[in-house]
């Protein structure tokens, strides 16, 4: 176990450790993955795991939650991103391969990936 020799080391350790309990801390970003039977059948589980891995890689603070059937079964897997008071953006037909760009554009650069969007709901 590392012995902390300075305040700086403590801060560094804290930053690392914060990820472990990310799901418990407040955040403005929530990513919701539809996990109804339809979603899972369409590969939502893999999409979600890809999202988790991507967030981890990029060190982005966001909550990932699941819901049941959102209702647009033909567009599954559906991924919902909400940031603060921004409108809720729903992307459809997401595959694990698309996750990297989705995260980069939407969360890292603040650019909604318009071509994948299937719905927007205000607040």
């Amino acid at each position: 176990m590392p012995r902390l020799k300075s305040v700086e080391e403590l801060q560094k350790l804290r930053t690392q450790l914060q990820k472990n309990i990310e799901s418990r801390t407040e955040t403005s970003t929530t990513i919701t993955v539809g996990m109804g039977t339809c979603g899972i059948a369409a590969g939502a589980r893999e999409v979600m795991q890809a999202i988790l891995a991507e967030l981890d890689k990029r060190d982005i603070n966001a909550h990932v939650t699941t819901v049941g059937c959102i209702g647009m079964c033909h567009k599954e897997p559906l991924v919902d991103i909400r940031q603060g008071d921004e409108p809720r953006i729903t992307y459809g037909n997401i595959t694990p391969a698309m996750v990297s760009r989705l995260i980069e554009d939407h969360l890292a650069n603040g650019q909604v990936v318009d071509e994948w969007v299937v719905g927007r709901v205000a607040g």
């Binding site: 690392q16 450790l17 990820k19 472990n20 309990i21 990310e22 799901s23 418990r24 979600m48 988790l52 967030l55 981890d56 909550h63 990932v64 939650t65 699941t66």
Partner: peptide, 11 residues
């Protein structure tokens, strides 16, 4: 050591 959970169950 980081282990990102999408959910934590606190009992």
């Amino acid at each position: 050591m980081a282990e990102r959970h999408r959910a934590d169950l606190l009992i």
